[in-house]
Write a protein that binds this DNA or RNA. Structure first.
Lengths: 113, 113
DNA sequence: TATGATACTTACCAACTGGTAAGTGATGGG
DNA sequence: CCCATCACTTACCAGTTGGTAAGTATCATA
């Protein structure tokens, strides 16, 4: 999604969390920091390459932070910034809508109750 | 964005309004129906081809309706369905966040005050 | 007869996105 | 000495998305 100017906040917002996975990744962080491997286990169908790409972009957009613990095996934690947290709050209604819509249309398999 | 199953409502929601323009298009409908040409005038940088594609997909996903008035020159109005309206309500906080974020980062030119 | 308005429609193409599969480096444990 | 763990990293590729530019159909109006 190329940069441009927008008439409302929808454009910028979707520029930073648009795409297939970014909002899902962000959403997983709502209860605390996660490690790289934890994302992998929680989000099915998301490859390592794409995950790290999206995490790097979220970091560049200041929605998440990346903290390295110099251990072996390595430990890296990703957490929400204030912007990321605020965006997650704003994503709440979207998640609710999406869940209701998915159930009503039955188009995406069963969601966990 | 391929179909799959999701662990939360974020996935389905972004599957129907993800992409560069759909949320913007939907958002423009919040104050009432619009004609094809009105979208074009309101949303800069959006080509006719892409606009009609997105409108058709939004229609298929039951977020907007398309009403044809058989006149010459033709008149076609697009309006929100109930699902579309509910999604727009849920997009409100995202628009607010996006506006604040865009202003704070100054990355997308000036938004109208 | 020519023009303009409206809402598309088509052909073509470049860029971006997402995906698979395999490899890297450090080190502790068997 | 070999393997496992963890967090990447790289090469390669296919499919999707978005974009440009031109064309279509109808009929009122000049």
């Amino acid at each position: 999604m190329p940069n441009g100017s927008y008439a409302c906040g929808i454009g910028p917002a979707f520029e930073v969390v648009g795409g297939k996975w970014k909002a899902v990744i962000l959403w997983e962080l709502r209860e605390g920091p996660l490690r790289f491997g934890e994302f992998r286990r929680r989000i099915g169908g998301l490859s390592e390459k794409v995950l790290i790409q999206q995490l790097r972009e979220l970091e560049a957009d200041q929605l998440v932070t990346r903290q390295v613990f110099h251990q072996v095996p390595p430990r890296v934690e990703y957490a929400l910034t204030d912007w990321g947290h605020a965006l997650n709050v704003a994503l709440g209604p979207i998640a609710d809508w999406g869940e209701a819509y998915a159930r009503a249309t039955g188009r995406w398999g069963d969601l966990p109750s």
